[in-house]
Structures are given as C-alpha cells and as structure tokens.
Amino acid sequence: MFKYDICEKTYLKLLDLSDVDELFALTDRSRDTLREWLPFVDDVITVKDTEQFVRNAMQQYANNNGIQAGIYYEGKLAGVIGFHQVNWQHKWTSIGYWLGKDFVGKGLVTNSMKAFIDYAFSYLKLNRIEVRVAVGNIRSRTIPKVLGFHEEGRLRDAEWLYDHHVDQVVYGLTAAEWKKIKSIKGETVAL
C-alpha cells in the first residue's frame, strides 16, 4: 500500500475501493469548478463511475504503469494526484492533479507534487516529468512554474473540453534539474 506523509495535516494514499464514496462526493460537490478545466467531470454521474475510475487506478498501479493517489487533508479526501502512465523505455511520466473546491489555496497540490517528483526520480528512477495544463488555467499553471519546471511549448487544440478545444502548455523537469533545485534549497534527494 502506497502512503506518504507530507506533513502533520496532509498525506497521500493510493486510491482504493474504500475511497469511492468520498471521492464521488468530492467530485460532485466540486463539479462546477472542476468542469471548467477537466474533461472527465460529465462522465462521473454515479458512484459506479467513480468506482470504475478507482478500479482502473488500482489496475494501473498493479501493472506498474502509474499511480493515482488521494490527497488527504485533516483526514478528508481533498483531491487526486497521479502519474498518467509511465514510459519505462524513455524513463518519463506525466502528472495530473485536481482539488475539490473547498481545499484550494492551502498548498496541497504543490506539496503533493514535490512528493511525487521525489518519488518519480528517487524511487522509480525516471529521468523526466511532464505537466500539461490548459493555457487559460492560470492557477494550475503556477504550480509547475513554482517547482522549477520549464515551459517547453504550446500544443494547439490539444484537449477537448465538452464543446471546444483548448491549447495546452507543456512543462518539463528532468532528474538533474530537480537535484540541482533541491541542492540550492539545501534539501537532500537521492537520485
């Protein structure tokens, strides 16, 4: 079981079937804000839809092809962060994340990203992480910038959001860059 303590109030845990009801409720309560930038929200109609997502996430982890973790804050499920898939041949992955509307602005995604970056580079021995964010999603675009990712380009009409395409900005970070960032901050990282 994957569990990682970020601080006294926050931890990450591999999603499992015990999370289904809480994850569905979080998605449903935050539907209006999530829908602006996430294309899956209208497909989550019932608890069974969330259960299928969690089952797929558990299978993804079992297949060593990524991880989907719940972000827990003060004992409550606040959001999800995950590796979409892992390209083992080229040693890279991409990260996605979202928070319920009641948990925004607490640094939860930034701190969760730090943990996932360390996990990818130190434990999985990957060399590159990518984040793709819709151009207009300024709040979400801030996170990779703060963490030292480089803006690498813009993908035109890369994502379909319900009734229109949006451009995405691609951010990238390598293991060597992360090691340098950590050493400048005086933090240790074993790569």
Rank of each mutant, 00 (worst) to 15 (best):
F40T: 07
D43I: 05
I45C: 12
K48V: 13
D49M: 09
T50C: 07
E51A: 15
F53W: 06
R55A: 05
R55D: 02
N56G: 15
A57S: 15
A57V: 11
Q60A: 13
Q60L: 14
Q60E: 12
Q60K: 15
Y61S: 09
A62D: 08
A62P: 02
N63C: 09
N63P: 04
N64C: 11
N65G: 14
N65Q: 14
G66D: 07
Q68H: 14
Y72Q: 12
G75N: 11
L77D: 11
G82S: 05
G82V: 06
F83L: 12
F83K: 10
H84E: 12
W88F: 06
W88V: 01
H90F: 08
K91V: 09
K91Q: 14
T93Q: 02
S94W: 03
Y97L: 03
L99D: 01
L99Q: 10
G100T: 13
K101G: 01
K101L: 01
D102V: 10
F103H: 10
F103Y: 15
F103Q: 06
G105N: 13
L108E: 05
L108P: 00
L108V: 04
V109G: 04
S112K: 12
D118H: 08
Y119P: 04
Y119M: 07
S122T: 15
Y123R: 12
K125W: 10
L126M: 08
N127P: 04
E130S: 14
E130N: 10
V131N: 08
V131D: 11
R132S: 06
V133L: 00
V133C: 00
G136P: 06
N137Y: 05
S140P: 01
I143C: 07
K145R: 14
K145Q: 12
V146W: 13
V146L: 12
V146E: 10
L147T: 11
G148A: 06
E151A: 12
E151V: 11
E151C: 09
E152T: 02
R154A: 00
A158G: 04
Y162M: 02
Y162F: 04
